[in-house]
Every structure is written in structure tokens, then in C-alpha cells.
Amino acid sequence: MKIRIKFAKYGVMKFIGHLDTMRFFQKAVRRANIDVKYSEGFSPHQIMSFAAPLGVGMESYGEYMDIEVNSMDSIENMKEALNQVMVDGMEILSVTLLPERAKNAMASVSAASYRIRMKEGGFPVCGLKASIEGFYRQETIPYTKETKKSVLELDLKQGIYELDADDEGGIQMLVNASSSGNIKPSMVFEKLCQFAGWEISPSAYQVTRLETYTNLAGEGEPHRFVPLSEVK
């Protein structure tokens, strides 16, 4: 049976990296006595996969992982059992039974929504909403991505599906999170700051992933994003 687990990671847990989060859940699954399936071979490991890695320092209320189990009594009990073995800042939000033919979480990811807020107070700028609108109206938003090996020229505009100020003085965005065109919210924010002439230190704001989506639309159709937990 394939199970999809949605969880939140916030507070001090934002300092736990992706690999350590995976290790945390491997142990949590054992503590919760979940009858998880193991791979074959000399050193069997739990069949477990994560949707989209979350950078250190980011919080999230829309993280996903899939596991396979041999048996279970109910998804409610599994959620309860997992929540019993969590720590502060890790919370199981939902557990769903996936159809057998469902693609795994990682392959399903196509977009993610984020919120950026100042850690204290609001953004120290005036005309937040107008600046965001002006920024988003641009035809192209070129971005130079430098990695250790290469320098890539990207157009962020293609991958920003929504961008707006929220009611609480923050910024929200829906961006491409697929393996081919993933856009980091910090990239968008960096360009926005450049556009608007703001100077905001990276440690002054908090990025939170709100949800991770898959696209149900067929090829050529407009995006139809639904949360990963709502895959039927």
C-alpha cells in the first residue's frame, strides 16, 4: 500500500537539513511501529521518498513524503501514531492512501507556493503592492544562476505563476517546483529587491513553503494545480 504523508516543519526544525529530515522520519516510522516495507538486498532500507527538498532555514506547512506499508489498521491511527513520536516543530498534517498507480511524490511535484515575511514587523518599504505588480508585469525577469560548475541564464517570469502581496504584509508566490524548472523563492525575492531598490538582509526575512502541488492538466492545457495530498 502506498501512503502519502503531509507534514509541517517549522520553528527550530528549520535548521535540520533534508538528509537529516529523512533520517528523522526513518526513525520516527520505527518508533510509531508502522509496518513499513523494506527494500530487498543485504542492507534493506525503508521504502520512503520525499517530494521536494526544503532548504535549511525555510519553514513549511506543505511537505510530503511517500512510504509503502505491508499493512495498517487505519490512516487516522497512522497519523495519530506518527504525531505521538514527533518533536516540536514537526507535525503530521494528513495521511492519505494513494492509488497503486500513483506516481511517487517527487515525480509528481510541479509547483509550490511560498510566503516571504519579515521576521519582525512588516517590510521596511512603502508601496509593496505596487512594486510587486510592477515587477511581475515585466515581460522577462532574467536571472543568472551560478553553480560551482556552470553559469545559467534563466527567465524567472516563465516559472512564476502567481505573485502578490498578502493581507498580512507579506509576499506570496506560486512558482515552478518541478525537477526541470525549479525556482527558489529567494531568487524571485532577490530580483524583486533589485527591481524596487530595496536592501533587505537575507537573515531578516523568513521563507515558508505553504503547499506543494502537482499538475493534473494534460499536455497543452492550462495548469491545473492541486495539492499533492489531493491526488485521487
Binding site: 527550530v12 526544525m13 535548521f15 535540520i16 537539513g17 537529516d20 526513525k27 520516527a28 518508533r31 535549511v56 532555514g57 513520536v85 518533536v87 516540536d88 516543530g89 521576521k119 538582509s201 537575507p202 537573515s203
Partner: peptide, 19 residues
């Protein structure tokens, strides 16, 4: 502070909260 924790190697060494 977040600023310090993001700057040092392995911030998980300093936050506690373990199981």
C-alpha cells in the same frame, strides 16, 4: 540568532529539541 545559525556549519549541533 537565525543569522548566526545560518552562518555556522551544522546548526543542528546547537538547537537541542532532539527526540
Amino acid at each position: 540568532s537565525d543569522e548566526i545559525l545560518m552562518r555556522v556549519e551544522k546548526p543542528a549541533r546547537y538547537i537541542g529539541n532532539e527526540v
